[in-house]
C-alpha cells in the first residue's frame, strides 16, 4: 500500500515497513522514528541504522542482535536503550528495510 511519510509517497507493508528501499531517505527515517516513539535520532541511532543497512547489503542477510554486537560493535544493552522493546523491529523500520522475520 501507499503512504505519505514526511511528504514523500512511499510503498509500505500493512505494518508500515518500506517495500522499496530506494524510496528511503533520512527525512523519512526521522518521521518513522517519531511515529514509533523515538523523538530524535541521535548519533547512536544512526550508527545502528547505517550498520544494519551496510551489513544487509554485504551479507544479504538481516543482521541479528548478536551480529550488531559482534560486527557492529554496539553493545546489546545500548541497542535496547536506543530502540526500546524490539530493537531490530524498530531499527529496520526506520532504516527503510523489511521486517526481520524469525523463520524457524
Amino acid at each position: 500500500m501507499e503512504k505519505v511519510i514526511a511528504g514523500y509517497s512511499v510503498d509500505v507493508t500493512e505494518e508500515g515497513y518500506l517495500t522499496n528501499k530506494g524510496q528511503w531517505n533520512k527525512e523519512i527515517a526521522e518521521a518513522i522514528a517519531k511515529e514509533i516513539g523515538i523523538d530524535e535520532l541521535t548519533e547512536g541511532h544512526w550508527k545502528v541504522i547505517e550498520f544494519i543497512q551496510k551489513d544487509l547489503a554485504k551479507t544479504e542477510k538481516m543482521p541479528t542482535i548478536r551480529r550488531v554486537k559482534n560486527a557492529g560493535g554496539i553493545e546489546t544493552k545500548e541497542l535496547y536503550r536506543l530502540f526500546p522493546e524490539g530493537p531490530l523491529l524498530k531499527a529496520t523500520k526506520i532504516a527503510g528495510l523489511s521486517k526481520p522475520v524469525s523463520c524457524v
Binding site: 551479507t59 542477510k61 541479528t64 548478536r66 551480529r67 559482534n70 560486527a71
Partner: peptide, 8 residues
Amino acid sequence: GDDLNFVP
C-alpha cells in the same frame, strides 16, 4: 561460519 558458527 557466521556469528553463531552456522555455515552460510
